[in-house]
Amino acid sequence: MCMLSKLLQKIKGARLWQAALLLLLTTVVIISCSITIDSIDQPDSVQGGETLTSTLHVTINTNDTRSAKFMVALLVPKVWNASGNAKITFTSSITTGTQTMSAIPAGTAAPQAGGKDWPTLIADKIGNGGNLLPGWEWVAFYSDKAYSVVANDAITVTITIKAKVSNDNLSFKLGYVVANSSDGLSDAQYYASAFPGCFRVFGQGDLMDYCNPQLSSIDPLSAMDNDIITLNFDAGVIDSELKDADELYLCLKGVTTKGDTLDGCAQNDRTRLSTYALKKWRIDIWPRQFFNLSKSQQLESLVYYFTDKTGQVKVGKDGTGAVPFTYTFKCQ
């Protein structure tokens, strides 16, 4: 009886060791999985309306046999409409010929993401690359095919992205994420991201600078005179005479499509900005109401300064009263 008990204990002990060993091996195998963006070839700038070509060099180290689609996501200005204007292809060490990818329809749930789609998941987990204006988006693409990989393989992938940019004049911090349709962003080892810096499009119109803090910006970036627009003033960006002001006012002029200038420069309740954070001010206006436009009138642009309560101290684009801020009404 005693011998039988010892034998059973030995068997249980052996099973425990086997289980522990298996757990350890599993952990080692899982930890050894990785995906990295080794390098990015991307120009510093393009002309408006041209095509941006980027190449990503990626290495995937596999830990088990599985089948999944490859995912590439781009952080781009919304005005580029990248889901329709970008093409992504890739070659790899486990495939023959060029492989194609397609934009994932908005709302398609990402794997292991609690129902979130890829753009929402990436924005929540990885962010917006430090872009300072609204109007950015993540656009995700899946490979058109699923690929089977074997365990403990090192796969090299070369991704080519061709994105036709809009005519807008902008600087933007582009971003890239690579992952797969099985693991999603469930753990840091399963995806890689990269933000190669500020990218410039020499286009038309006012510069939309996502890279550097702006003394003034308007939200939405694209709007018509029948939208409610928010004019922001960040008094902390540079030293200006309004840096420490305790009241700020908007001195606004509207230019109609017929070339008439409408004067809305005043210091009153209607033009007073509110502060919402340290040295950050804003005012929301409906231009059609602000200028009391008739049905036949339409605004083409705005010219504006920020002033103190006397109206004597004016701050424009360069932090002085020399050059006003401008905004052109347009839709994407």
């Binding site: 919304k78 939405p220 694209s222 709007a223 029948n226 939208d227 839709c331 994407q332």
Partner: peptide
């Protein structure tokens, strides 16, 4: 969208 179609109220 009273202005640009990209702006939804």
């Amino acid at each position: 969208s009273p202005g640009c179609s990209s702006n939804t109220y």
